[in-house]
């Protein structure tokens, strides 16, 4: 009986150029020896190389600043951090806390969806501008189709306090003057003057800064995967060091029940 499965060619056969470890003790990442060619890289440059294959101290420094300034607020009320705080108060482990927080950062109102979405929007918008559409037309189409524009508007607060320090740092290392940054702030000017009053948030700023350095949405997504960890970890540590179960306990009256009022009986 001949085998027809598309999987047959992969059986005991995984070919890759990304890298690996050999029994002889050699470690290779994207064709370079980790111990002799990549060993002096700062961790962020190593991550950049691992995620994209790009090598750039300037880009590494920019990404590092994005992580410090923009992505790791140590507030346990922020929903992804709250997982770590709850894990700490329930005496789970630090890695489980971080893994839970990390999984939850793939959110809609913050985190990975706006980060990747803003990059995708700016690149699409730039392409359509080149094709002759007006910015107003592009934004209106986006709003009509998706009811929001990734990178604009923010939960809880209106303006984003990270925009100014991030742009100041970016300019200090010679970034922030490219076409995507200009486009990002053009969109901000348009949207903040509509009835929606959406202001630019940090996702659009970071996406624009990195798009100007040649980072596409998929690369940005991969680079941002771990970026929230330094905010979540202290929330776990803090809750672990306080009384177990002490993180915002809720009495039963904190449930506002809006369902069926009557007492029903299960029929057997």
């Amino acid at each position: 009986m001949p085998v027809h499965s598309k999987l047959e060619k992969f059986e005991d056969n995984w070919r890759t150029s990304i890298g690996g470890w050999s029994l002889e003790g050699k470690v290779v990442l994207r064709g370079k020896d980790v111990f002799t060619e990549l060993n002096e890289k700062p961790w962020m440059e190593y991550l950049l190389y691992a995620a994209t294959g790009k090598e750039s101290p300037k880009l590494g420094r920019l990404i590092e600043a994005i992580w410090v300034i923009c992505t790791s607020f140590p507030d346990p009320r922020i929903w992804n951090n709250r997982i770590s705080a709850l894990a700490g108060t329930a005496r789970s482990t630090g890695v489980l806390a971080a893994a839970g927080s990390l999984a939850v950062t793939e959110a809609t109102v913050y985190g990975l969806k706006p980060i990747k979405g803003a990059s995708d929007f700016l690149i699409r918008a730039d392409q359509r501008l080149k094709e002759g559409e007006s910015l107003e037309q592009i934004i209106k189409t986006e709003l009509k189709q998706f009811r929001s524009v990734y990178g604009y508007g923010r939960p809880i607060a209106d303006a984003d306090e990270r925009v100014k320090p991030m742009m100041e740092f970016a300019r200090s290392i010679g970034c922030g003057n490219g076409k995507y940054v200009k486009l990002a702030f053009d969109v901000d000017e348009y949207l903040s003057n509509t009835r929606l009053k959406y202001k630019i948030n940090i996702a659009a700023v970071c996406a624009a800064l990195l798009a100007d350095e040649g980072i596409d949405p998929a690369e940005l997504y991969n680079l941002a995967t771990l970026s929230f960890t330094a905010g979540a970890m202290p929330c776990f540590i803090d809750a672990s060091n306080q009384q177990e179960g002490g993180f915002f306990p809720l009495r039963t009256s904190r449930l506002s029940f809006t369902g069926v009022e009557e007492i029903r009986h299960w029929e057997v």
Binding site: A87, T89, A90, R91, S92, L96, G100
Partner: peptide, 8 residues
Amino acid sequence: LSVGAGNL
């Protein structure tokens, strides 16, 4: 799972 895994 992360949170419900703990000692408390």
